[in-house]
Design a protein around this nucleic acid. Sequence first.
DNA 1: ATAATTTCTTAACAAATGTCAATGAATGTG
DNA 2: CACATTCATTGACATTTGTTAAGAAATTAT
Lengths: 200, 200
Amino acid sequence: MNPFVNFILNFVSLPNCDRDLLENELTYKKFKTGDKILQEGNICKNILFIVSGKARSFFINQEGQDLTWNFHFNDNESKFENYFLVDYNSFLTQTPTFLSFQALEDIEVVMLSYDSIQKLTSNSHILEKVASKMSETAYQNVHKRAFILLTLNAKERYMQILKEEPYLLNKFQHYLIASYIGVAPESLSRLRKEITKSKK
Amino acid sequence: MNPFVNFILNFVSLPNCDRDLLENELTYKKFKTGDKILQEGNICKNILFIVSGKARSFFINQEGQDLTWNFHFNDNESKFENYFLVDYNSFLTQTPTFLSFQALEDIEVVMLSYDSIQKLTSNSHILEKVASKMSETAYQNVHKRAFILLTLNAKERYMQILKEEPYLLNKFQHYLIASYIGVAPESLSRLRKEITKSKK
DNA sequence: ATAATTTCTTAACAAATGTCAATGAATGTG
DNA sequence: CACATTCATTGACATTTGTTAAGAAATTAT
């Protein structure tokens, strides 16, 4: 079975007719390590569901700092949003994204276009529900991201990852984790040292 | 006409039947300056549309820092999200909120409960569309908030407000603006001084 | 296995932001 | 009007984070 359909079935039971509708709209694509999957300034026209491999979305700010917006991968530890390569903001409004997406490994995805989703949600009430559940979840994630960035300092953000998403540390290099927290890699090193020191 | 219905009509044209459906679910409420409208740990069970007055949502972090999540008011300069008193995160999932909402002036609101919204959206396709447009907008706002917090430093955040929401500076005191940007009031003072100096 | 490359850590110093205390400005109250 | 209160600013100093440069550790290529 299609891995994306399979994923959806974890959350809702889809009648065969809806499942067929959906499967007919899906396309497949592969990227190589280092490929640009979507680039700043373009419109996010598709939702990509990751079948295998990992990626990240990022932004280079005015000072040239490279900041990781999110990590994207599919394994048994992934959170909901991690499975997808999409900027919902750009996708929903069909306006240019600020983010770039790059493959950190060879990647296989299942692709669903904006137009397909319009078609599917208007033809199937269940799929409309699925779509709205997905955007709710997307909302909750970005809400949490903003809340963490506003209320926690660098050390607390790192400890939050240690506590809630420790698997990120095995999967992504420290300098990427640092850019996700919003600090320089050297600062993260220093924080890690302080933390291990205080634990003894 | 009800100010909330009036507001909705700016975005979609509502047939009379839907308008009546909606008006029947609305209730009215007032708060005095300083009142706690919703408190951390409680479930956000209503969407409040502000008719008059201003408020803010905030969080006190581990270090005792008081951080402003958002400002809430209704005038001709309000952005979409400013009109509402709601934590969508808590509202959508009906789980406890991390935020508190306090009135900064006497406030009048129009209130719509979670249950009412369930009823309205299942009975009217247009109102369902309205609700989904509203959550899209909410998504865009919180996305922007997270993006700013990740990619801009304190000075840039302040200049962003100067550029995009300068009216906030007349409406809310500097120490509240500082807590919205995520810095100490003294730091904001310093930044303001640097900015006016560099403009000459 | 060795060499080359990349990533991680460390230390010294610089820059940004926080803290504290004092003062001045603005506002509200009797 | 005088007084009290709250808010904004300022300066001195502390803390946090960034920057730079160097070397250690890990990874990749030959």
